[in-house]
Design a protein around this nucleic acid. Sequence first.
DNA 1: GACGCCGATGGGAGCGCTCCCACACTGTGG
DNA 2: CCACAGTGTGGGAGCGCTCCCATCGGCGTC
Lengths: 341, 341
Amino acid sequence: MSGQGRSGGRPTLEEVAVRAGVGRGTVSRVINGSSKVSEHTRAVVEAAVAELGYVPNRAARALAANRTDAIALVIPEPEARFFAEPYFSDVVRGVGATLAETDVQLVLTLAGGERERRRLAQYLSGHRVDGVLLVSVHAGDPLPELLAELGIPAVISGRRSADETLPCVDSDNLAGAAGAVRHLLGRGRRAVATITGPLDVYGAQCRLDGYRQALAAAGHPVDELLIAPGDFTEEGGRRAMRELLERRPALDAVFAASDVMAAGARLELRAAGRRIPQDVALVGFDDSVVARHMDPPLTSVRQPIEEMGRTMARVLLERIAGGPADAAVVLPTELVVRESS
Amino acid sequence: MSGQGRSGGRPTLEEVAVRAGVGRGTVSRVINGSSKVSEHTRAVVEAAVAELGYVPNRAARALAANRTDAIALVIPEPEARFFAEPYFSDVVRGVGATLAETDVQLVLTLAGGERERRRLAQYLSGHRVDGVLLVSVHAGDPLPELLAELGIPAVISGRRSADETLPCVDSDNLAGAAGAVRHLLGRGRRAVATITGPLDVYGAQCRLDGYRQALAAAGHPVDELLIAPGDFTEEGGRRAMRELLERRPALDAVFAASDVMAAGARLELRAAGRRIPQDVALVGFDDSVVARHMDPPLTSVRQPIEEMGRTMARVLLERIAGGPADAAVVLPTELVVRESS
DNA sequence: GACGCCGATGGGAGCGCTCCCACACTGTGG
DNA sequence: CCACAGTGTGGGAGCGCTCCCATCGGCGTC
């Protein structure tokens, strides 16, 4: 912080070299912690670095080394609203935690409409980041292919299908859903309904599969009329619940594939005079703020979002380094039992 | 996307120049949309750019021009949890919206513990960003001074005191709080209590001032025993509410300086057998997810967070450009009336 | 005692851009 | 007809680093 500057600017590698009485190459080696530098020289250089308060110039480094030491996190704007809550900040926190150990910076990119999407493509072709973190990509999204073409490493969360081509990090949607349903059955519920997410989203499909498997494993036949499609929105949840109550008035439990839909379902159940959990038990998915503050507090399946962020970043860094990285990581979920079930 | 590359890499300025049959300087001028280039030459160059799919190399540009075209958004990690909800993503969305028009990238920085803080200082001294967006800075934080010393433009949201030295963008905490209290009085409430935030946070102080002013303006004396200190946490809200009920059992309304504290207060009111809003009306601040999903839904003061983000970015860009920028922007809040009052 | 080898080091050659000075050229006024 | 602005334009000189090759001792070897 003391104003060292001989000529105004921050010190350069060259100046450190002069100060330490060595060559540029040597200082560079020390800075990059690499290869063969004698114990003594290293000490001298480090002293000079400290004295001058030298900090390498990122742009120069990027230019010379042809890497940016930056990765991008692409946020699909439109959805952002939905999973805004803890999701967004938790992912960022996780990613940040992994990156904190390194010298890699996190660039945030909002890719909403067609237009932003195009800009993003431009942006990425500019080779402005070493890698990309993708979150919740839709089936038809061209971005993954573009990245592959450009040879930019990428990691995805929320795989697009069972055979995702990109390395991906997901939570165990199937097991989480199955656990929730098992929990309901375990509490003596007989007619367990489910409100699904949009089934073209792979994760939503998995949750439905989990529902089916849990039922099957318990020897219950699956009643298709107990399955209602939702779309991850509150309104969608209400609609689905209404439908279910009409078709199967005797249901005594509902597993909603998201907390927000559960919130919608709750309103509808109230309106129909059903008490939660006495008449109908309700379980959600995500363990979001909504779940904790619902009345009654909602039992929900928690995803380790922050850890997913950490893992995504780790896998991407490995990928960038060229090392062998996991192609798919699935992290366990956890059922958080509250008063709604 | 077609593999132009003569030698593999992406095309450079030089190559565009050759293709267009002009000099490097001219292409640079066209790219930067600047100064005097003849109509004809511009067209030729633009054609060459399009044909080659040229995208400028950000690192080279940064090195040569000594600017990075990047700004940092510093997130104070520890608090992140609290105002995680919409706040974080809304700010980012706003900032992103402003930045979308430009070629500036958003770098996210988590500055939590002492250690990260130090890293951040290092980072910023590396001149790695053109400007910094600060959110919710504590009174004793050294960061603003560091930035001033380094001559890095910064904009703050959540000013530290009435005479903030940095340009800042805030919502009108005082008016928002006053409006909430006026609303309660307007509904015939007589004994309006308040749960404050930590008073060393300027915004929290403003909300308390707003409470006082509204009372005063309505000709009510301020009863100091109706004021209980909180800390923006749910537990703090509970504690404060307990205190209030003990001291002033006859209170019939509570203005909490945050939704989360209101959530805590609600639990305590329930436990004490008070009905909301029949016995006690409750109003929060932030209009977070919690407010919408509380039972009953919470009346709350909404801050235009996304717009704050947009404005912060705009002011910072002006600052960076060297133009005259607003020193302080205060955006209006809005009372969202729901069933709790 | 000359040779070869290896770890440690110095420094040239860029990386792709911006900046800016110098150099046409075209007009205009004296 | 020449001097003199005023436009456009070309291209040299870096920006601060990394890469890599040449160099230099010191030491074991035949």
